[in-house]
């Protein structure tokens, strides 16, 4: 058992004992979800908290489907889709991270 899985498992056990919902812990510290959330919250600087934009020129990520987010980010990353900012940002993430962040936006507050 790895350190991470030990901690995750035991945390969930304790959560349940405490009557809390185990998903809350899995969300804040479960492998892919942790990665998705870590990257996802850093997008809020431009795209708004939880991907909800309050401005007309920056896209609300929250209204996009998981699949659309993955496709858009991969196209920005490869250069197939032209961009000004997102082409530079998308190149900073692995495909695994792109999948994780798309899943985060598809599930956050929904």
């Amino acid at each position: 058992m790895t350190l991470k899985s030990l901690i995750t498992t035991t945390s969930i056990a304790v959560c349940s004992l405490m009557g809390l919902h185990s998903i809350a812990f899995a969300d804040s510290h479960g492998g892919a979800n942790h990665m998705g959330r870590t990257i996802g919250v850093s997008c809020a600087g431009c795209h708004g908290t939880d991907g909800v934009s309050h401005s007309p020129h920056l896209r609300s990520i929250s209204e996009l489907s998981e699949e659309k987010i993955v496709t858009a980010l991969k196209k920005f990353k490869s250069g197939e889709r032209k961009g000004s900012i997102m082409n530079r940002i998308a190149k900073g993430y692995t495909d695994e991270q792109i999948t994780a962040v798309a899943h985060y936006f598809a599930t956050v507050n929904k």
Binding site: A44, G45, C46, H47, G48, T49, S53, H54, S55, P56, H57, L58, S84, I85
Partner: peptide, 16 residues
Amino acid sequence: KEANYSENWLINISND
């Protein structure tokens, strides 16, 4: 476009 992004970035990050 980048001028628009600049202005809208400040709106969204301030709100964040």
